[in-house]
Design a protein around this nucleic acid. Structure first.
Length: 589
RNA sequence: GCUGGCGUAGCUCAAUCGGCAGAGCAGCGGUUUUGUAAACCGCAGGUUGGAGGUUCGAUUCCUCUCGCCAGCUCCA
């Protein structure tokens, strides 16, 4: 350090510190790759959340055996404890330097930067173009592991050549690395595709088609509970529920602009009786047509139409992913029609409603983004400013922490996106609130104001869960299949110890059902340990064991999910226990 | 869509060099009447994703195709 400067120590505990640490790690990996495969060319290698990657131009994909060799070499480099050395040179010199070494991608990067000075970092015989900073020496990296390799396009553009990317991670200690690897295992264990099949909730089958979901009885039951809750709450919140068909004339989609802007995501239209029909990719035009079905007064506004609307979108094959990305899905959609001065209040109501619903499902942490006007957009600048201001005011009025994504709004208006964080800290985009200047214009929406003249309403699109399929998948992973009692497809199972208690078990089950709970009886001629094991695997919240003792006393022996002994209770007391569990979840906001 | 990997019984996975497709669980039949995460015996279960090719012979090798997985790109 040659001048006075503010010195800020960074450690692995801070985000910046992690970044530097992982960045140095990726240099070490790159050095190892160059040592093992000298013909590999360097592209870029940044730190990412939970690790790092480096892209290489190489004549073939890296195999797991390659990764082992590279990792072994990287460990040697760490052991050798090479110091990281920074040097600077004029940009042209740097270009010449990398050209000589055959590092064409580095040359490409240099040709695109504006700085006339380039900084290079070296450790041992390895030199890389790099802004830095780095840890003092390679020995500072405690535990380093390569995780996987895959193709990735140069500069993230699919028209560019594909490079070979290696992912890895590093931590100060082996213990921390092990904890991270354990988390990866946990993520695998909770995979909704696996759990969905194991718990017999949903399947996606080749014979049906990719991205098309079959809801089996237990999955469908959970969905029914979700939908019932959704409808009930929407009616309470002043929404009117509507239904719309799955196809409509192609002309409707021409008017809405979807044919023009969204065609690559739409199924091919079908021809019928001299006109073309389109499978719906969105619900909005239908709600608009309900609005338009008669003349509207300013007194009618806001109008809120809600629908669990099933839409079909053609997604490129490579992007489909279990329930999280499908081709046919149901949006918990609603469209609000309001006056410009009502935007803030309406958006505020939607935000409150969203948080209420998401909290009820057990999510407590959120990431909120406000996306502003993109380059290409419809609507006047004043409209954008007013609407964006209203969104912001609604957020501020509620003390919601948010970040601004400049230029990330949809072309037809600004939006607020809410991501939910699951129990493993992963963020999922579900809820969205979007202002739409475009559709009211395209469909010539109007209301008669106090002045007796026709005015254009503002339209707000919003979804709380986004898609029921995706939301269900997230819930499944969040709870690892152990749904809270109010959602569990089977809430209680009565297990008899021998067939002497069959009648009693059936009568207990009938009492539970009469009380309004989803109960089953396992009357099979099996040992109690076996029945409990099966009930545990099915993640049923309450197991009611009945043997001779219970039958004599008119009680049940209650076992909670994962082994809790809740004691011997009378049947009404057991029902109270279940009731308390259900209502607690529905009240805990 | 792109790059790579993978498709074997309902599920999880074996099958050496190209040489009779096998196990556990689940299912079915029987025995067992059981006290908090797996009783025992038996039976059945397959066009090895699909189509073509090479070969005396293909789960295995080749081509095409469908699907899945990882990543990229794109997104609820």
């Amino acid at each position: 350090m040659t001048e006075d400067a503010a010195l800020e120590p960074v450690t692995f505990a801070s985000p910046d510190g992690k970044d530097v640490y992982r960045h140095s790690s990726t240099h070490i990996m790159a050095q190892a790759v160059k040592a093992v495969f000298p013909s590999a060319q360097l592209a870029i290698g940044p730190a990412i959340e939970d690790g790092f990657y480096y892209d290489f131009a190489f004549d073939r994909p890296f195999t797991p055996e390659d990764l082992e060799k590279i990792e072994a070499r990287a460990h040697e480099i760490v052991k050798a404890d090479y110091p990281f050395k920074r040097m600077e040179m004029p940009r042209q010199d740097a270009i010449r330097f990398f050209k000589e070494r055959g590092e064409n991608y580095k040359v490409d990067i240099l040709e695109h930067i504006e700085d006339q000075t380039a900084s290079l970092y070296s450790q041992g015989e390895f030199v890389d173009l790099c802004r830095g900073p780095h840890v003092p020496s390679t020995g500072r990296i405690g535990a380093l592991k390569l995780l996987s390799s895959a193709g990735a396009y140069w500069r993230g553009d699919e028209r560019n050549p594909m490079l070979q990317r290696i992912y890895g991670t590093s931590y100060p200690t082996q213990t921390e690395l092990d904890a991270y690897l354990a988390k990866l295992e946990e993520i695998k264990r909770r995979d909704h595709r696996k759990l969905g099949k194991e718990l017999d909730l949903i399947t996606i089958q080749d014979e049906i088609g990719p991205g098309l979901v079959l809801w089996h009885p237990k999955g469908a039951l959970i969905r029914l509970v979700i939908e019932n809750f959704w409808r009930e709450q929407h009616l309470k919140q002043g929404y009117e529920l509507v239904y719309s068909p799955h196809i409509a004339r192609l002309d409707l989609w021409k008017t809405s602009g979807h044919v023009e802007y969204y065609r690559e995501n739409m199924y091919t239209p079908m021809k019928l009786e001299a006109s073309e029909y389109q499978l719906k990719p969105m619900n909005c035009p239908f709600h608009i047509m309900i609005y338009k079905s008669h003349l509207r007064s300013y007194r009618d506004l806001p109008i809120r139409y809600g629908e669990l609307g099933t839409v079909y979108r053609y997604e490129r094959t490579g992007v489909l992913h279990g329930l999280l990305r499908v081709r046919g899905f149901t949006q918990d959609d609603a469209h609000l029609f309001c006056r410009p001065d009502q935007i803030e209040a309406e958006v505020g109501r939607v935000l409150d409603f969203t948080f209420f619903v998401l909290r009820t499902f057990g999510f407590a942490e959120f990431e909120v983004c406000l996306s502003t006007r993109p380059e290409k957009a419809v609507g006047s600048l004043e409209n954008w400013a007013q609407a964006t201001g209203a969104l912001e005011a609604a957020l501020k009025g509620r003390g919601v922490a948010y970040q601004i994504d400049p230029g990330e709004g949809v072309f037809y208006g600004p939006k607020i996106d809410i991501k939910i964080k699951d129990v493993l800290g992963r963020a999922w985009q579900c809820s969205t609130v979007q202002i739409d200047f475009n559709n009211p214009e395209r469909f010539a929406l109007a209301y008669v104001a106090e002045d007796g003249k026709s005015h254009r309403p503002i339209m707000i699109h919003r979804a709380l869960m986004g898609s029921i399929e995706r939301f269900f998948g997230i819930l499944l992973e969040h709870y690892a299949g152990a749904f809270p009692t109010w959602l569990a497809p089977v809430q209680a199972i009565v297990l008899c110890i021998t067939d002497k208690q069959r009648d009693y078990a059936e009568s207990v089950t009938a009492q539970l059902k009469t009380a309004g709970y989803r109960a089953e009886a396992d009357l099979r001629n099996e040992k109690i340990g076996f029945k409990i094991r099966e009930a545990e695997k099915a993640k049923i919240p309450f197991m009611l064991v009945v043997g001779d003792r219970e039958m004599q006393a008119g009680t049940v022996s209650v076992r909670g999910r994962s082994g809790a002994n809740l004691g011997s209770l009378s049947v009404p007391a057991a029902i109270d226990l279940i009731r308390a569990d259900v209502s607690q979840a529905l009240r805990a906001q």
